[in-house]
Design a protein around this nucleic acid. Structure first.
Length: 1080
RNA sequence: GGGCGUAUAGCUCAGCUGGUUAGAGCGCGAUCCUGAUAAGAUCGAGGUCGGUGGUUCGAGUCCACCUACGCCCA
């Protein structure tokens, strides 16, 4: 029974369709997902993508990276837990999509439409492209369970999040504080950075006011010196002045106390020295100079009373003082900065322990508390002139003007935006910062520098995680608060909530608005209502280890015994602050351990020019286009073999085409070669292939060094690929496989070709088949994680068709194990030298301008003594490769060769240091005879003496490198101590043999061009010899050889052969016409 | 502005703890080899190893600074 024929011109896309069909009809993927030993699980976490856009090239990249490692561990016999799809479904991007679709312009539109309706739209929108994702996932052979994915919008998922939040709550890791956001007072919504950047306008006209903040004596050392003076501060937002709680100076800068004003009304002001002239003009006198740090702690009289936030009891003893902070710029203003934490300076306020006070509410109107001052309930921009006028009347205004600067506006409604400190919920990650840093040390990062670089730095600069979002489509935060704001509770499960309200809520959709309707009466504090916020959707995905299993409500054992920590995750590098961080933070806070043990962090995919792909540039590569042209395997191989995937790298049609020609076709043709000849010879793997698909090959039965070499290389490859994949390196094993395929094709098969052509099916041919078969079958398994289709094709044809009980797919076959008996480093090294000699021989032939087809009588070869003994065994290979009749191995010291020495710098450098240049010179200066004598000594492991700079050094053999060079009259090439010299003297016999080979070559061409099958027998007629004695003799002498080579039944001189295919051959001054036709 | 990464042939990339003439593939030119091959081999053209300093007998490699690009953050 033969193997299925393999077309050398096969379409890989068609092949993948066929294999895909095989997987479908035999339900291979489902079996693979269930495959493996449950007592040796491999835990994987799928980072959930959002399915509200089509999958792009970078998604393919991440999915393939995941798939390769999963497949490898499965073949190693591990059962993979967590190979399931997941969808990230909540969040602002989804809401924006829906708003766009419905033509909404902000939260008021959504609330009018109804949260229930809106969220229903979100839910259906987020899965718009789920079909595309499933199709792509299937086509690229990312084998995860797409039928039972987890979704972050599932009630079970949300309930697990509630449980987590409750754990944090109980440990005081969940708290409320302010957070400054960009707020649109008309839309009543927070804008994202991207939205804010869209709405910046230059040259916005605003007030520009300089204000006096009068010193208030408080026991500060400078109270006396500064008595009666005022700090000058500058602002463009008078409306924020009631929220002022501090003035900031730069502690490093110089400040001056200056006298200014008219003679009638002199006054003293304090401001930065470098800005005094700009602010005060010429008319001022410097009274004293202070460092900014000297001023810190001084107090001043407030301009207005600010309004505390709802439920706040701010500590005003900390307010109205000078603080020092190096953010203070001396570029403009006065070098003294008015601080209003509520409207942008919250971080500064927090750092210096300042209270937060308000002047304007969320609709942008000034607070009613300012009624007596005359600027209550005014839009903040309208309040500016009123406040300025009031300050002028009070004498607090030093000077005023207008300024044009950039200011952000709402991109939707063009309303001026506010920096606004809103109540917000935080996870207190900073409390466990040390643990975050410590548990990160347990993680293996690939590439390694991320660990203590980008990610480690991020962790050590950790800030509390702002987790609440004032939005609709998200996991509702399970916090209920009383109307008086004095009591709050965090609910950790649906059951607990049911108990609160006294009825089962198991059918409740946990989303807004339904959950918002759940309230209860607290005996002390009254009605408890849920806060309106939803969770940051990064919390959703970061909690997936827990929530995907609905832990702890379900799968308790699974999670606690196995799935609580991933062996492996992989995403692109932008996730260091995203999913990698949230996974790590949630796991460390909950369990004090990292969420994942190993992570491959991928670089981004750029376009063919190295530019980032973006919709606006229109340079997005659609992965389908590439896959439809070259197939999945080509894309997968390119992504991980062409360059390390940890750096950004280019992706284009052309680059993949190159890779395909270089690697895939070489592999395919080797496979095709094997099948073609095995089928011709009727070879089967009987006795080699066991019924279960395993191989039994006794190396002792192989006598041909080529076979032993191939298996030694194969065993080496198995060890390399296994070790590297164990270390989560995907690139290195792919490179090793590439090298192996190249050598298998261009050395093993090329050298072994004739063994497969022999008509007699002898032991050597059998050994060649067994060896190549073993290589291909093993390779199919090593390749399986990378090129799942190609691997399956080779496996199905070579193994499955012949082994009734073999695994139905290579992806469930056992990973190859190293066979120590196959390993043979000495042999590998010898062949390396043989290959070097062949290369040198070719170079020598080129320098002598003789074709390889022309036999030459002799090649002289010199090799280093450590390999010399093993090489004569390969004389046959050398004679054939280089077409020479004899090889002569030159002894070290042969007069034929000249020797030169170089210092072995690695050894000598450390020993002799500054003497090295002199040593180099002394070695170079050696005459031929002493060099030869020293060379013999070195070959024998003996030292020799050398005078360097007046002192005699004893030079040990490992301290020098010996180079050889050649005499004249030979065609010579030399490299690393290996020298090959060709004797180019031709005898008439050699010339005749050369002609014979030349003619054979043309007959073969003719056969090929005539379209004959490899096994077809032919007749040949050669015309144009014209009684040339040399040609006539040649064709007579070499008649049998020529017939054998070309499968010719007849080979004659003459004219005409009806219906024959003709080929002409220019030979010196003759033109031969070669006619071939099929023999009957 | 900060952190991390990257910079080597026209293009894509290797170059281990410092060491000898800086390599491979693609592309280009010439030649060769070939009944598995869309492949392969040999030779050639093509490099101030981003720049400037420094350490060292010796720097693509180590150090400092700078430049450009990418990612993240401010």
């Amino acid at each position: 029974m033969t193997f299925r024929a393999v077309d050398t011109r096969a379409s890989f896309v068609a092949l993948e369709d066929r294999i895909g069909e095989y997987w479908r009809t035999h339900d291979i993927k489902r079996h693979a997902l269930a495959h493996g030993d449950h007592s040796k699980p491999f835990i994987f976490y799928e980072g959930p993508p959002t399915a509200n856009g089509k999958p792009g090239v970078h998604h393919v990249e991440a999915r393939v990276s995941k798939d390769i490692i999963i497949r490898y561990h499965r073949m190693c016999g591990q059962y993979v837990i967590g190979a399931r799809g997941g969808w990230d479904t909540h969040g602002l991007p989804v809401e924006i999509e829906v708003e766009k679709k419905l033509g909404f312009a902000g939260k008021p539109d959504i609330e009018r439409y109804g949260i229930a309706n809106f969220n229903a739209e979100c839910k259906s929108s987020v899965l718009t492209y789920i079909g595309e994702w499933e199709k792509m996932t299937d086509r690229i052979a990312y084998w995860i369970d797409m039928e039972k994915p987890y979704s972050t919008f599932d009630n079970s998922y949300i309930e697990s999040l509630w449980w987590i939040l409750r754990q944090f709550w109980d440990r005081d890791l969940l708290f409320r504080d302010y957070k400054v956001t960009m707020h649109c007072p008309r839309c009543g919504t927070t804008l994202s950075d991207a939205e804010v950047n869209q709405g910046f306008e230059d040259d916005v006209d605003d007030p520009s006011v300089w204000l006096r903040f009068r010193l208030a004596p408080s026991g500060h050392p400078l109270d006396h010196a500064l008595a009666g003076a005022a700090f000058l501060a500058w602002t463009t937002t008078p409306w924020t002045l009631p929220a002022n709680v501090a003035l900031a100076v730069n502690p490093e800068a110089d400040y001056v106390l200056a006298q200014t004003g008219s003679e009638d009304h002199p006054e003293k002001v304090i401001l930065a020295a470098s800005l005094a002239e700009k602010v005060l003009g010429e008319q001022h006198t410097i009274l004293a100079t202070y460092k900014g740090s000297d001023l810190v702690g001084a107090r001043y009289t407030r301009l207005f009373d600010g309004v505390p936030g709802p439920g706040d009891q701010p500590d005003l003893t900390q307010a109205y003082r000078v603080i020092g902070d190096d953010f203070v710029s001396l570029d403009d203003g006065t070098g003294i900065v008015h601080i209003a934490p509520a409207y942008g300076d919250l971080d500064v306020g927090r750092k210096h322990g300042l209270p937060t006070l308000f002047s304007v509410d969320l609709s942008g109107n000034t607070m009613p508390q300012f009624a007596e001052l005359g600027f209550a309930n005014m839009f903040f921009k309208a309040a500016d002139p009123v406040i300025t006028k009031l300050l002028k009347e009070r004498g607090d205004l030093f000077k005023s003007g207008r300024v044009k600067h950039a200011y952000p506006f709402c991109w939707r409604c063009k309303t001026a935006l506010l920096y606004y400190a809103k109540p917000s919920w935080y996870i207190r990650t900073t409390a466990l910062k040390d643990r975050l840093v410590a548990t990160n040390q347990e993680v293996q990062w690939v590439p390694e520098h991320i660990k203590n670089g980008r990610f480690g730095n991020w962790l050590s600069n950790n800030i509390d995680w702002a987790i609440s979002r004032e939005r609709y489509w998200g996991t509702p935060l399970p916090i209920w608060i009383s109307a008086d704001g004095q009591h709050s509770e965090c609910i950790g499960s649906v059951a607990e909530l049911s108990a609160k309200v006294g009825r089962s809520l198991s059918d409740l959709d946990l989303h807004r608005p339904y959950v918002d309707e759940i309230t209860w009466e607290d005996p002390v504090h009254g009605t408890m209502r849920r806060i309106p916020d939803v969770a940051d959707c990064w919390f959703d995905s970061g909690a997936m280890p827990v929530a995907q299993w609905h832990y702890p409500f379900e799968n308790k054992e699974l999670f606690e015994q196995y799935a609580g920590q991933a062996d492996y995750i992989s995403e692109a590098i932008d996730q260091t602050r995203g999913w990698f961080y949230t996974l790590h933070a949630v796991s460390t806070l909950l369990f004090d351990r990292p969420a994942f043990k190993n992570v491959i962090c991928l670089g981004h995919i750029l376009d063919g020019k190295g530019e980032k792909m973006s919709k606006s540039k229109g340079n997005i590569v659609n992965p389908w286009d590439i896959i439809n042209e070259f197939g999945t395997d080509a894309v997968r191989w390119y992504m991980f073999a062409s360059a390390p995937p940890y750096n950004p790298r280019r992706f284009s049609r052309e680059l993949i085409g190159d890779m395909l020609r270089q690697f895939t076709l070489t592999l395919w043709n080797t496979y095709s070669f094997f099948v073609t000849y095995a089928n011709l010879d009727g070879w089967t793997p009987a006795g080699l292939l066991n019924a279960d698909g395993s191989l039994t090959l006794d190396i002792a039965t192989l006598t041909n060094p080529l076979d032993r070499w191939a298996l030694a290389r194969l065993d080496n490859l198995v060890r390399t690929v296994t070790t590297e994949l164990d270390g989560y390196d995907i690139h290195a094993p792919a490179k090793a496989i590439e090298r192996f395929v190249e050598e298998m094709s261009n050395w093993y098969v090329r050298r072994s070709r004739r063994r497969f052509w022999k008509t007699a099916n002898d032991a050597d041919t059998q050994a060649a088949y067994a060896t190549l078969y073993t290589c291909l079958v093993t390779l199919s398994k090593l390749l399986a994680p990378f090129m799942p289709f190609m691997a399956e094709e080779i496996y199905a044809n070579l193994v499955l068709s012949k082994a009734p009980n073999a695994s139905t797919s290579v992806h469930m076959a056992s990973w190859p194990v190293s066979v120590p008996a196959w390993s043979d480093d000495a042999l590998v090294q010898s062949i390396d030298v043989v290959q070097t000699i062949v290369g040198l021989g070719r170079a020598a032939r080129r320098s002598a301008a003789t074709k390889i087809r022309q036999p030459l009588p002799l090649m002289l070869v010199r090799v280093p003594s450590n390999v010399a003994a093993s090489l004569p065994a390969f004389e046959g290979d050398l004679r054939e490769e280089l077409n020479v009749k004899a090889i002569r191995w030159l002894e070290t010291g042969a007069t034929f060769i000249d020797y030169r020495f170089k210092p072995n710098l690695r050894v000598v450098g450390k020993k002799y240091g500054k003497l090295v240049p002199a040593l180099t010179e002394a070695l170079k200066a050696l005459d031929n005879d002493s060099a030869r004598a020293h060379a013999i000594a070195v070959e024998n492991g003996q030292s020799f003496d050398l005078v360097v700079d007046g002192q005699t050094l004893t030079v040990a053999p490992d301290e020098v490198l010996v180079e050889t060079s050649s005499p004249d009259g030979y065609a010579v090439a030399e490299e690393n101590g290996v020298l090959a010299a060709l004797d180019t003297t031709l005898t008439p016999d050699l010339v005749a043999e050369g002609i014979a080979r030349e003619v054979v070559r043309y007959i073969q061409d003719a056969r090929k061009n005539a379209g004959f099958a490899i096994s077809d027998r032919i007749n040949v007629v050669i015309d144009g010899v014209d009684n040339d004695p040399l040609l006539t003799a040649t064709i007579t002498t070499w008649h049998d050889y020529m017939c054998a080579e070309t499968l010719a039944e007849q080979l004659v001189l003459g004219k005409g052969l009806p219906g024959a295919h003709l080929e002409t051959l220019e030979l010196d001054d003759k033109t031969l016409t070669i006619a071939v036709s099929k023999a009957e």
